[in-house]
Design a protein around this nucleic acid. Structure first.
Lengths: 159, 159
DNA sequence: CTACTCTCGCAATATTATTTCGAAAGGCAA
DNA sequence: TTGCCTTTCGAAATAATATTGCGAGAGTAG
């Protein structure tokens, strides 16, 4: 049984298969997963529990279509706080529900954030909350060649 | 029963509550959801089915920690294809498993992509695949003030 | 008013999840 | 090598859940 050793956590082929199956449908039943992996349901349940406890699995998420909620416009914001206002900006971002994702990054921009809004006017309103404390650059999403996929496939390449 | 009308889809309070509960734990059982919402399990199951069919729920995902897989370095790439190479670049991005997310955007950059890699050398290798066809700008993620959250919270603000 | 549609929940049935526990395999020390 | 311990597994029993069928009630339209 080949094991992939990562971060003091050994992931064997069965673990990887479980993760791949959950990647496809995170609501798959334990019984179903067990049949696909070729182990019993209690074994698979135990493995999932371990993957959760070891921090490999962080959460199970539902992917909701923003457009179906009327949020037709998505945009990436690059945000560069004015000196001394970094933590103010971070707090504004956190408290702005339109912002669905935000990373602090190296480089001249400090934050990269994703926003979903219903209109250009709303996008302006989001930006206007940030503008007093930072310079921003906005790029509207036109399409998504790669919709969010898990990092699993990259592991094959990085032994 | 108040209904939120979006995109020819009516979402009532129970639908919203189901979505919120799934946002927290997408593997919650139908029985559990039903108890929280105050409806029967068959009703909740029927509603989830409708939310899926209507495209509100697009998928159920597992959030895997890249670092736990040895992918310790994450970066945002801004990618600007050389004229005439846009579709080549799109194909490279799609075929590069290290790239977990990618949007095509307005503005001087054409793509914004997220990559998870095991080292700086690997990041270089990813970039080297793109470099012949595009200019790139790389920003390493230092922290994530907002980890990916669903667009649900933004709906309250956008009636 | 009647007829139709939609939503709901009850009850029965099928399936799954969890728990308990013994067996087997693997690893380590003597 | 043997013996002991640990880990993993799966069978079986029990509890819980999921699905299906169907009737009831509410809402809407004519």
């Amino acid at each position: 049984m080949k094991r992939l050793r990562t971060e003091n956590i050994d992931l064997d082929a069965a673990d990887m298969k479980i993760l791949r199956l959950l990647e496809k449908d995170a609501r798959a039943s334990t019984a179903e997963l067990a049949r696909s992996v070729g182990l019993s349901a209690p074994s698979v349940a135990e493995r999932i529990k371990r993957l959760q406890e070891n921090g490999v699995i962080e959460a199970y998420c539902v992917k909701i279509n923003p457009a179906a909620l009327g949020l037709k416009l998505s945009a990436w914001l690059r945000i560069r706080p004015v000196p001394g206002q970094l933590s103010v900006v971070a707090e504004i971002i956190r408290e702005t529900p339109e912002i669905a994702q935000c990373d602090r990054v190296t480089g001249e921009d400090c934050f990269i954030a994703l926003a979903h809004v219903g209109s250009v006017a709303e996008l302006e309103r989001v930006i206007d909350r940030i503008i007093p404390y930072a310079m921003t650059n906005t790029a509207i999403i036109q399409s998504s060649p790669v919709v969010a996929r898990s990092p699993l496939a990259a592991v094959k390449r990085s032994p």
